[in-house]
Design a protein around this nucleic acid. Structure first.
Length: 186
DNA sequence: CCCAGGATTGACT
DNA sequence: GTCAATCCTGGGA
């Protein structure tokens, strides 16, 4: 790994590499969170990326410093959390294996099964309590917390989900065999 | 200014 | 499997 999780250098790299290196890392936010098991990379010159057509008010965080959060509203009702990498690129956090503050997250999600608690970008943000208020926030500082992974997990790559452009790129990454993936890899 | 469509989810057939 | 919910962005006129 290029540098420590608490240094900008970790994030100021190609999103694809950061997406792989985030698997197995524990993400905490206000006492809740879990182990990152699924990510997707979005690049500056990527037709599927929000940054593809340049900077706008919504995607401004993607063009700011690396190591910040880019949070956007999806389908008018869900929040999705990204970590900003090199300018105009970011990693979408798609799933966690919940480990921190389980009771709080369960209560927030009204009895949703633990396996589904953080399995999907919208579910994960809802369980953690991440909203647009966190857009642009420094994820290397509280209330965010990042804990290094104990070892490199067995990584699977696949096509990204829910997009209509650049569908062939294998920019979705997951921890092989995790029961918390938002969808299986094939 | 207008309006089609989206990096999703959950309910329902 | 299908489909509506919901809102706001941004491209095009």
């Amino acid at each position: 790994m290029a540098s420590e999780l608490t240094e900008t250098g970790f994030f100021d790299r190609r999103a694809e590499n950061v997406a792989r290196d985030l698997l197995g890392v524990t993400l905490g936010f206000c006492g809740v969170g879990g182990v990152i098991v699924e990510t997707e990379a979005y690049h500056r010159d990527d037709p599927a990326s929000h940054s593809y057509r340049g900077q706008t008010p919504r995607n401004a965080a993607m063009f700011g410093p690396a190591g910040r959060a880019y949070v956007y509203r999806s389908y008018g009702m869900h929040w999705c959390l990204n970590m900003v990498c090199q300018p105009g690129s970011a990693v979408l956090i798609r799933a966690l294996a919940p480990t921190l503050g389980l009771e709080v997250m369960r209560a927030r999600r009204g009895g949703l099964a633990d396996r589904l608690l953080c399995s999907g970008p919208g579910r994960l943000a809802a369980a953690l309590g991440v909203t647009g208020a966190e857009d642009g926030a420094d994820i290397m500082q509280p209330p965010f917390r990042l804990e290094p992974r104990p070892r490199e997990p067995d990584i699977v790559a696949g096509a990204r989900i829910g997009i209509t452009k650049a569908v062939d790129e294998l920019l979705r990454f997951g921890v092989r065999g995790s029961p918390h993936l938002s969808k299986p890899f094939r």
